[in-house]
């Protein structure tokens, strides 16, 4: 009798132990800021190769697009995590008392760039401001364009709205346009049959992190372990995407965005590696997703100089939390995959 009870209890324990590490799959929605492209590759990789599942997360990626603004969904509670393109969005949120916080920075460099035709004198960044036509989308017009105007002498007269159509740029040799350094140059080469001149804003002082993961402050307070799992799984996803087998992720992204092709995505990954977008600088030392308060403060100072904010208007301590990154997560996987 006693022994049978012990057996039962032991069996129950063992069963529970067996179930234990494989926790209940928590449903999570992650909204991006564009249609699926290689710059989102790490997240799709984590979905495709089961990394999120291993961390107990059932992640749905909700893509954005040219006419979609996913940002209000996060404070409204409709998504759990949000991808944003630069710290300016976070500064704006804190300024307007929106309760969100940055928890990780996947890109150490913002791939935001200006493209120009070769052989038109735009090989030097200083000459871009003389372009008669600058095609800038609304998002950029209301953020980093101001910085370009104040600190680099660009003029409003040249600005024309960029509607994500390459035609006006391709047909006008004197035009410049915005783009992601890891994306638009590939499309320009495919459609316009020439290699454009690319000037990364990051190389000229636009020192923000990019592809940030944002969460609600209440989520961070109430369920920090959920946030940690998501961040860790995303970091590992990025490392696998850059150095491992990308085929499954590519298939997922093409399904979400049929206009994307695998060749373009491969070219994009190559550029990401060569330009050191993801794992250089702080990320090389402390793992993908790393952030530092010093860099955030420096970037804020730059933006104050550009007139986008007033000094002290934004409480920088609320912009990001470092509790989930800088732990070297995924460094071992990277070493294994890249053979170092």
């Amino acid at each position: 009798m006693h022994s049978r009870l012990t057996l039962l209890i032991t069996a129950a324990w063992l069963t529970l132990a067996g179930i234990g590490p494989a926790q209940a799959q928590h449903k999570v929605t992650f909204a991006t800021n564009w249609k699926a492209q290689a710059a989102h590759g790490g997240f799709y990789q984590a979905v495709a190769d089961g990394t999120y599942k291993k961390y107990g997360l059932d992640v749905t990626i909700q893509q954005g697009g040219p006419s979609v603004n996913n940002r209000p969904l996060l404070p409204a509670g409709r998504v759990d995590f949000l991808m944003t393109g630069n710290l300016l969005h976070s500064f704006d949120n804190i300024k307007n008392k929106v309760p969100t916080v940055v928890v990780a920075a996947m890109f150490q460099k913002d791939p935001q760039a200006l493209l120009a035709h070769p052989g038109q004198g735009y090989e030097r960044f200083e000459n871009l401001k003389n372009a008669p036509l600058a095609l800038i989308a609304k998002d950029g017009q209301f953020s980093w364009w101001q910085w370009l105007k104040v600190l680099h002498g660009f003029k409003d007269e040249a600005l024309k709205p960029y509607n994500y159509n390459l035609a006006p740029f391709l047909s006008n040799p004197k035009a410049i346009q915005q783009g992601y350094s890891v994306a638009e140059p590939i499309y320009v080469e495919n459609q316009g049959k020439f290699k454009p001149v690319v000037h990364l804003l990051a190389d000229h002082g636009f020192s923000t992190y990019s592809t940030l993961i944002e969460a609600r402050t209440e989520t961070v307070k109430a369920r920090p372990e959920l946030v940690q799992r998501f961040v860790d799984a995303s970091v590992i996803g990025w490392i696998n995407y850059l150095y491992g087998n990308r085929k499954a992720a590519a298939a997922l992204m093409v399904r979400d965005n049929p206009e994307m092709s695998e060749a373009e995505m491969e070219a994009s990954v190559a550029l990401m590696k060569s330009q050191g977008i993801v794992d250089t600088g702080e990320a090389a030392a402390r793992g993908v997703g790393a952030m530092s308060t010093a860099r955030i403060a420096d970037f804020y100072a730059q933006m104050v100089k550009a007139g986008l904010y007033k000094a002290g208007e934004v409480d920088l301590t609320q912009v990001a939390t470092l509790q989930f990154v800088n732990k070297g997560v995924g460094q071992d996987i990277k070493a294994k995959l890249s053979g170092k």
Binding site: H89, D92, K95, N96, V98, K138, Q141, F142, S143
Partner: peptide, 9 residues
């Protein structure tokens, strides 16, 4: 649009 992009509702 500008206000919406900058979350200045």
């Amino acid at each position: 649009l500008e206000a919406s992009f900058r979350t200045e509702t």
